[in-house]
Simulated assay, not measured.
Amino acid sequence: MTGGHLPGVRRRRLSAALKRLRAESGMSAAQVVERLGWSSATKLTRAERNEWKYPKRAEVEALLDLYEVEGEDRAHLLSLTEESRGRSDWHQYADLFTGPLPDLEAEAVRIRSYESLLIPGLLQTPAYATAIFESSQIVPPQDTQRKVDSRMARRSVLDAPGGPQFICVIDEAALRRVVGSAQVMVEQLRFLAGMAAHYKVTLLAVPFEAGAHTAMDGAFALLEFPSPEPGIVSISTGVESLYVEDEAYVDRHRLIFDGVHNLALDPKRSLDLIESIAFEHDKRA
């Protein structure tokens, strides 16, 4: 699933990087187009908003020249330009997602996630995911299996060459909440414990005894990409997903994540807690 390029996300990443570079240059859109001799600022603003279809290499090169981008950063952004054509590997599931989450995950170099009530989607079992979707008043019954299949397929990013590191902090409430049945939870938590050994996964638990913390307002994920691209905050609900690239917004969520990360148990103690809760669920099954 993650073997090819993901053109839609690469265009988005390129747009975000160009917007960030202009901001760092201190130039307005009008000043940029005047320097480049372009007829209108519309071309630039459409590019920065990802409202273009096929980025032109010559135009991207002109912008990089103006912003004095050289070396590896320049080569990286020109590579994004060449690869931002075609369609996503996830096009067969496009109707099931409210945003480009699978593509963003596949393109990220690191994902840091906080979950308050759910096991994170990348680490869910089919039975757990099925129970989540079946309990929803949003997902039509005829779409449940495809939703489960798409969620399971997302996990392939963790095994893909160059795939992201996944650091996940999970509140104890998500481990104790019975989703589906006690047996479903036993299977889910034992699978979670197994995934903790994955070389790209760091799994941390926040025990109830940690008390109040910075992330109590809800779950989110921080997706990070190669320099000079900005990070993205992803916040999902049952009906929509929000993807924010604003640097100040992302920085605030980094502070929030750092706060809850510092309160979490270390990996060994987190695994001990997961296994002990799995044992409690097993006694009820």
Results as ranks from 00 to 15, higher is better:
G8M: 15
V233H: 06
Q142R: 07
A173C: 05
V9Q: 13
L223H: 04
V260T: 06
H261P: 00
V206I: 15
A196L: 06
A285V: 03
R110T: 12
L123V: 00
P100F: 05
D282Q: 13
Q137G: 15
K19F: 10
H253F: 15
R254L: 14
P102E: 00
I277G: 10
V179G: 00
A62N: 13
D258I: 02
H76K: 06
W52L: 13
A219W: 03
R284W: 07
T202Q: 09
K147A: 10
E24Q: 14
A129V: 02
S84M: 09
G8V: 14
D266L: 08
D266M: 03
L63F: 09
R74E: 05
Y199M: 10
M216G: 10
A248I: 15
L222N: 09
D258F: 07
V60P: 05
P230G: 12
G121C: 00
I256D: 09
S181M: 00
A62P: 09
D282L: 11
R151D: 01
S234F: 15
A17P: 07
Y249I: 08
V239T: 14
T45S: 04
R20G: 11
S181N: 00
L273V: 09
H281N: 00
Y114I: 01
E59I: 04
I232G: 06
V33H: 07
Y67G: 01
R155M: 08
S270C: 01
L44T: 10
A129T: 08
L96Y: 13
L63H: 11
D217G: 12
L263R: 03
F191C: 01
L63W: 11
D143E: 14
E105V: 01
L189A: 11
D171N: 11
S25Y: 10
P161Q: 06
E82M: 08
L104R: 02
E245F: 15
L36T: 09
D217T: 09
V60N: 03
R155Q: 14
R49C: 03
L14S: 04
E51L: 12
A212L: 03
I256L: 05
E72D: 09
V250L: 14
E172T: 03
Y199K: 11
A205F: 08
Y199N: 11
F133Y: 15
